[in-house]
Amino acid sequence: MSLNVRIGVNPLSWMNDDLPSLGGETPLSVALAEGQQIGYAGFELGNKFPREPQALKTLLAQYDLALVSGWYSGRLAARGVEEEIEAVGPHLDLLAQNGATVVVYGEVADSIQGAPRPLYQRPRFFSDARWNEYAERLDRFAAYTLSRGVRVAYHHHMGAYVETPADVDRLMALTSDAVGLLFDAGHITFAGGDALTELKKHIGRVCHVHCKDVRPEIVKLARNRNWSFLDAVINGAFTVPGDGTVDYPGIIACLAAHDYAGWLVVEAEQDPVIAPSYAYAERGYRTLRSLVDGICKEAA
């Protein structure tokens, strides 16, 4: 049993990509300085980061931070593999030249994650043919990124084609090991799954982990009142590890039991006016640090 991990953070605690008004006034330098002070080893990309490889490298070096990875808005549900490979080029260069070994692939074709529409209106693949076509495209795309030294970390996401545990199960069954799974404990819980159960099912494919927690009472309201994904975010559906009901002790123990090596990324879309950035980012870090250190002591 081993746990070779680094703890990183997504800048969503300070500023929101889907809702730029949340934390829009916060300079990137504040997020980087506070994240480094808390103890994080790296950051995922956000909308305020430079997109030129050397500029990004220089910026992160100022704070002694690594590049964890970065979200890529993929459209393989709507376009061909060659077009997708051409589109991903600059982003892949940015990641590869800054030492990131995974790319966060989020399918945004037909997604309603940023739209003012209730979550039940999300897109779905309604036939075996559509599922098979999508999986085949994703496999080919993932093989290409892997040839560049960067593995696809597929992000199941609220409001998208692959949202529920059943969706994740099917995608993993139809694709090869070239397609890694980004396990997001918050999204899988919001989608109706038990995070630890789903992690155990697909642990062999997990290459990246997003650590957010869930406030179930808000998720229930979101479902009952037909909120959009962004309405749920604004109202506090997500929070940092240790502030919700997700079984993080169980998740960290499961990762350790399967010798997970990679990043644990604290990520919690919240309004920083209501959930102060530093306090919540620190709480998420302390929760994970304590659990990881406890595992390491047991193994010693």
Rank of each mutant, 00 (worst) to 15 (best):
S13M: 14
G89W: 14
T287S: 10
H210Y: 09
Q37G: 06
E163Y: 05
D139K: 11
D18G: 11
A237I: 15
V265H: 04
A222F: 02
K200W: 04
Q36M: 10
G35F: 00
P53K: 11
S21I: 14
L67S: 04
C207F: 06
G294Y: 05
F229R: 07
P53F: 03
E282Q: 15
Q62Y: 05
F183Q: 02
A87G: 12
D169P: 09
V179S: 09
E136S: 11
C296E: 15
F141N: 08
G192Q: 00
I234P: 02
T245M: 01
L119G: 04
T239C: 11
L76C: 01
G74K: 01
L94G: 02
V68S: 02
P27K: 14
W71R: 04
A31C: 13
I234D: 12
G236S: 07
M1Y: 12
A268P: 01
L182Q: 11
F229L: 12
V30C: 02
D184K: 09
T239D: 12
P123V: 06
V273H: 14
P249R: 03
I251P: 03
I234G: 00
P11D: 05
I112P: 13
V162G: 00
P90F: 00
A281P: 08
I203H: 00
Y285I: 09
S147T: 15
V233E: 01
Q62W: 11
G46P: 03
L67R: 10
K201D: 06
D177T: 13
E44T: 03
K212H: 10
S290W: 10
Q121F: 13
G284C: 00
L230I: 08
E269V: 00
L28P: 04
E82A: 13
S290D: 07
L67C: 01
R124V: 06
T26E: 07
Y161G: 02
T189D: 06
G192S: 08
G204D: 12
D110R: 08
V209Y: 02
A100G: 01
V9N: 10
V102K: 09
L146C: 14
A300H: 07
A142H: 03
C254V: 11
M15C: 11
A77R: 00
L65R: 07
G39Q: 04
D17T: 12
N4S: 13
Q54H: 10
Q97G: 04
N132C: 15
K201P: 01
G8Y: 09
Y144W: 14
D128S: 07
K57N: 14
G39F: 10
T287M: 10
C296N: 13
D167H: 04
Y144H: 15
A33N: 09
R122P: 08
H91L: 02
R130S: 14
A191S: 13
S147E: 14
C296A: 13
P123W: 08
H157T: 02
H258E: 00
